[in-house]
């Protein structure tokens, strides 16, 4: 589904990703862990096509296409979704209008019929129920004045609606208390399916108590230095990143 080979990327002239190899198969959930500054968020942004990142080497193939050659909207239309660490507030842009524009843009790009207002509202009510969300969310401007928890839930709600093939959750746990974290994790788990893959980017192990990954990777200085099962996350939690860094340098 996703294959990344030897990926190198600069931000502001500084090399952050230094030859990253990584691949995801259908239905798999991968966790990427690492200390601050290891390149986790940069990796998520490069995959989603954000400006300001310069890819200097390597490749990323998604669904058989050269991902790096596509515009951000084309990546989304192909089935990629990024749940933002800091969801952006869009004052004046109504959430329902936004969700409908997004879904219909994706359907249109795939040559499928767009939804009219009635079927769209029916769909959206159904998704709200699955995620136990209040429909007052729909009347508000996108993320404007939302609490940290509401913003993250709105991200997962968008994911539920757009049904991506590959979702990247960028530090979805940051800024959430344990109750909010559980609600978000439940939402994510409800969306797990054999056709949907996920990359969970996180600094802390605690999110992985709720979203159990199939694979765990440790990122350090722009490279994956260890890969393993979910027990690797526990090991990290116990020993801290210093252990990995020391080992990384030794290796």
């Amino acid at each position: 589904m996703l294959a990344v080979k030897g990926l190198k990327a600069n931000v502001g002239g500084k090399e952050i990703l230094r030859g990253l190899d990584f691949s995801v198969g259908p239905g798999e959930v991968h966790a990427i862990m690492g200390p601050n500054g290891s390149g986790k968020s940069t990796f998520a942004h490069v995959l989603s096509g954000r400006e300001g990142y310069e890819v200097t080497a390597g490749s990323a193939t998604f669904e058989g296409q050269d991902l790096l050659a596509l515009e951000p909207e084309e990546r989304a239309q192909l089935g990629l979704f990024l749940a933002f660490q800091y969801p952006v507030e869009l004052p004046g842009v109504n959430n329902t209008y936004f969700l409908k524009a997004a879904l219909n843009s994706i359907l249109k790009a795939r040559g499928q019929p767009e939804l009219d207002a009635v079927s769209f509202l029916r769909l959206i009510k159904e998704k709200l129920k699955i995620l136990h969300l209040d429909d007052s969310l729909l009347k508000r401007a996108v993320n404007a004045g939302f609490s940290g928890g509401e913003k993250k839930r709105n991200e997962i709600f968008q994911m539920a609606l757009l049904e991506p093939k590959l979702a990247i959750l960028d530090e979805t746990d940051s800024g959430l208390d344990i109750d909010a974290l559980r609600v978000v994790a439940d939402g994510v788990n409800a969306l797990r399916s054999p056709e949907r893959s996920m990359i969970v980017v996180t600094h802390y192990q605690r999110l992985l108590d709720y979203i159990q990954p199939d694979h765990v990777h440790v990122l350090s200085k722009g490279r994956i230095i260890r890969s393993g099962g979910k027990e690797l996350a526990l090991e990290l939690e116990e020993k801290g990143y210093g252990w990995i860094d020391a080992e990384g340098q030794a290796a």
């Binding site: 096509g49 400006e51 989304a76 979704f81 933002f84 004052p91 004046g92 936004f98 843009s105 790009a109």
Partner: peptide, 30 residues
Amino acid sequence: IEPEMLFYLRSRGISAPLARRMLCLGFAGE
């Protein structure tokens, strides 16, 4: 137009021209 806002909309599959229009209408909506 804030590049952050534009990217957020585009990352949801919305084309750049439509995203710009949505942000302008959001600005005008008040």
